[in-house]
Every structure is written in structure tokens, then in C-alpha cells.
Computed example of a mutant assay.
Amino acid sequence: MANQTTLRHVVLFSFRDDAPADAVDKIVTDFGKLKDAIPGVVAYEWGTNVSPENLNDGFTHCFTLTFASAPDRDTYLNHPVHQAFVHTLGACLAKAVVVDYWAQ
């Protein structure tokens, strides 16, 4: 690969119709706290779908984390704080998609 210095970790969430708004807000807040709790996160951003194309297949929330290396990403994925966060999603999450890529 030409440039292996910027690894993006993109997470899309679709929440259950019966998920309380305050529970979804807590998930968003807690996701944002991961960047400060786990070393190796270079950048973090999130937002909700605003596309007029109606191609989001129910996914409403997008989170993007940037890492400088695959080992940094792997540390994040296996970190106990991340694992604890993942275990809090079950009651609200309908589905998730995760895509990692090297920025070109």
C-alpha cells in the first residue's frame, strides 16, 4: 500500500425503534469518551445522517476514528474500556457496520 500512515475506522449504527432518546444520547457521549480513555486515537468525529439520497439502510449515526497504525487500532479494539462500551450497546442497537481503510 502506498500510504499506511492514516488508518480510518468507520462505525455506523442503526438504533432500535424503541430505543429511548436518552439512551442513544448516552451511547453517543460514551463513544466520544473512548478517544481520551484509549491511547492511539489520532482523531475522532461523529455525526448523524443528513443525506437526501435515502440510501442509509436505517443507519443514522456515523463515527470515524483515525489511527496512525494497525497496532494502534488493534490496541483500541481490544482495550477493556472499548470492550465495556461495546457490551452496553445491546439494548439499543439494531445493527452496526464497521469498515477500516487506509486513507489514499
Results as ranks from 00 to 15, higher is better:
56 N>F: 00
33 K>S: 05
5 T>H: 14
37 A>F: 00
33 K>P: 00
36 D>L: 02
66 T>K: 02
32 G>T: 12
53 E>G: 04
73 R>S: 07
59 F>D: 11
43 A>E: 12
95 K>P: 01
93 L>F: 11
62 C>I: 11
71 P>A: 06
68 A>N: 12
25 D>K: 12
27 I>V: 14
61 H>P: 00
14 S>E: 13
46 W>L: 08
61 H>Q: 05
45 E>L: 03
65 L>C: 03
78 N>P: 00
101 Y>V: 07
88 T>L: 08
34 L>D: 01
7 L>T: 10
62 C>E: 14
69 S>T: 11
17 D>Y: 05
101 Y>D: 10
8 R>V: 06
45 E>I: 01
42 V>C: 02
25 D>A: 15
37 A>Q: 03
12 L>S: 01
46 W>M: 07
78 N>A: 03
90 G>R: 12
102 W>Y: 08
6 T>I: 13
46 W>C: 05
66 T>S: 03
72 D>A: 08
11 V>I: 04
46 W>G: 07
26 K>V: 12
70 A>K: 10
20 P>M: 12
79 H>Q: 11
62 C>D: 09
76 Y>A: 00
59 F>H: 15
27 I>K: 08
43 A>V: 06
61 H>G: 02
60 T>N: 04
75 T>M: 04
71 P>F: 03
89 L>H: 10
13 F>V: 02
33 K>Q: 13
89 L>C: 06
7 L>I: 06
42 V>L: 02
54 N>Q: 10
9 H>K: 04
25 D>H: 12
88 T>S: 09
23 A>D: 15
72 D>C: 06
